[in-house]
Nucleic acid binder design. Structure first.
Lengths: 343, 343
DNA sequence: GTATTTGATGTAAACGTTTACATTTATCAG
DNA sequence: CTGATAAATGTAAACGTTTACATCAAATAC
């Protein structure tokens, strides 16, 4: 049907082995021969068949990416980081989001055992132990994005949630707020856990009490931010500052505050985490923690390639934390002109 | 190395052909035999090798998706729609963003046609004629998302830009505004062109003049919205309403208005297009045009599968328009309580 | 009882490469 | 000039499936 290596070999007057060599990097072939073959291939619209190639060589030039459903703003940034890096190394990206209808374990297994990809980048905020075992035993390299702190048998790239949370909470404490509330994320979510840890640590450091009434569980959605805020602020004892453990919930807070005539930051200061695009539009702008999202993706890919190329040990655990940065808006009480928002 | 079909055949006491048949849908094999083989395969962690399979059968169970770099909010929604639909049909999704470099797109296309995927979903707002030819001659099915109006040799799924623009502009005209400005998108962008057409048509219909001073070219970015607004409003003759041809530019407008103390909608009414998440956070909420993004992706995939399965003619051009909906906020002058935003 | 059809399975030839090994040719030291 | 070494190319055996075709047994028709 389509042109094969045999045709090209005939037209170039060489064997198929030589044609094959013309298409691979480190093979001994005369530069002139290669040029000639590539020219003829070009003329005949010949491309090596990927299936045949990987059947024979066991390489697929493809990496797999498994993403969770939730992380909306992350999604495109992460993929962009991954895709860009993969493109540089001439690799393809096979994606799968772990849908509600889909069992994550199944997807990952499929990926790892089907031989379709050379390695996997896995992002699952709620990671069970069985996964960890599976991954650490796997023959194919796996890099996690956002792995729980206590897991150390794997390779992972993470946001420094603790540090980020600590510094943003420290920042509001320095404003003089003493009754600091927090809206945490879903149970078992490692980002949320770490951010809570940073929060607690900051309070402790500054000798502030950890008041149970000021700890509300949300689930990282807009809606939960809205309602958690209302719950917090309808108690007799109200916080004077709130740490929303992600920006999406902070957005919900802003709406709830507007609806109940509560002024930010006069009545209550708000800080968030993630620095998502939308948070920059809020009035006053949200003070939050910047996260290097696409870098998370590209770093993960770079490391994955090292594993694939055998430059690093496949089973040597390795935890990497990317540093966060504080983004100061007006929501914490800082005097901020909004004129500088243009980006 | 890993278990092959031969091993399973031996353990099951059948030929490899029978094992193969156990793994394909429409093959004559005794149910008991299949069950037994699948059990043994399961026990031995056997999965058919995808490369071998597709080398032999010419099927890859994979579709390709090429996306532009820009369209941020669309990205994740589109992929979600595509992935979900592909998953239902047991297909994998290979993504590539076109990195906004033209020759890259070419490479990507070639990659896609190298036999790695069974069909391609292509989204490129600025599509050149050479591509159209390439696509319409292609052996593999291609479905376009967002194809220029004047292109009719291909299969495409589109937003009804004209209708959407027409109705939102009609809406502001009905408010009584007579000097309606517009910020259009980048040159050659088909979405922008169609939206402009809808705009002009509405003006004409209501006997309003098309004033060149009220037409400013932006490029769909926040930044361009900001500066285009300033340009529009620093003329002697100012518009009393502005149609931003996408929401991202409307966001920029809001900031520019805030900085120059111009009140929306009292001093100037604003409407947008896309109904992106962020636009719901604006005060007053942006009146805009809702676009069924993920549906665009899933419809495209469904049609692609029909082409792959030969249910529809590969080369029969087919243009599909998905209807948009008007989202009423307060930015056009409508009295709107913001309480209902929670979604 | 024989001929015919049907369904389940086996046989073996693709599918289009890569690559270990063999062969040829060119290069060069002595 | 000879033998050794290196570089370029050829030969042919994998790689792990699918599938057209052949075979065989059982069911059905007459």
């Amino acid at each position: 049907m389509s042109t094969t290596i045999i045709e090209i070999a005939q037209k170039a007057g060489v064997s198929i082995a030589t044609v094959s060599r013309a298409f691979t990097q480190n093979s001994s072939i005369h530069p002139d021969t290669r040029r000639k073959i590539l020219r003829i291939a070009e003329e005949n619209h010949y491309k090596p068949n990927p299936s045949a190639r990987s059947l024979s060589s066991k390489r697929t030039d493809t990496i797999g990416v498994v993403l969770p459903e939730l992380v909306d703003e992350f999604f495109s940034e992460i993929i962009r980081g991954i895709d860009e890096e993969a493109y540089k190394s001439q690799h393809y990206v096979l994606v799968a989001s772990s849908h509600s209808q889909r069992n994550v374990l199944e997807t990952v297994l499929e990926f790892m055992f089907s031989g379709r990809v050379e390695g996997v980048i896995l992002m699952v905020p709620q990671l069970q132990n069985e996964f960890i075992k599976l991954i650490s035993r796997s023959k194919r390299p796996v890099v996690l994005i956002d792995a729980p702190q206590n897991i150390n048998q794997v390779v992972s790239f993470n946001i420094n949630n603790f540090q980020g949370a600590y510094s943003v909470v420290e920042h509001i404490i320095n404003h003089g707020y003493k009754k600091v509330g927090i809206i945490i994320g879903p149970e078992g979510n490692c980002d949320s856990d770490e951010r809570f840890r940073g929060f607690s640590h900051a309070l402790k450091k500054y000798n502030l009490p950890l008041d149970q009434d000021f700890i509300i569980r949300g689930d990282f959605t807009y809606r939960s931010g809205y309602y958690s805020f209302i719950r917090l602020m309808s108690q007799n004892k109200k916080p004077d500052a709130i740490f929303a453990t992600n920006d999406m919930m902070a957005l919900g807070i802003y709406e709830a505050a507007r609806n109940s005539q509560i002024k930010i930051p006069q009545d209550v200061a708000i800080v968030g985490f993630d620095d998502i695009f939308s948070s920059r539009l809020l009035q006053p702008r949200l003070t939050t923690v910047h996260v290097p999202i696409s870098e998370l993706g590209s770093s993960a890919v770079r490391y994955l390639f090292k594993m694939i190329n055998g430059e690093v040990d496949l089973h040597k655990p390795c935890r990497n934390e990317l540093t966060t940065g504080l983004v100061i808006g007006g929501s914490c009480g800082c005097p901020i002109s909004n004129a500088q928002i243009i980006f």
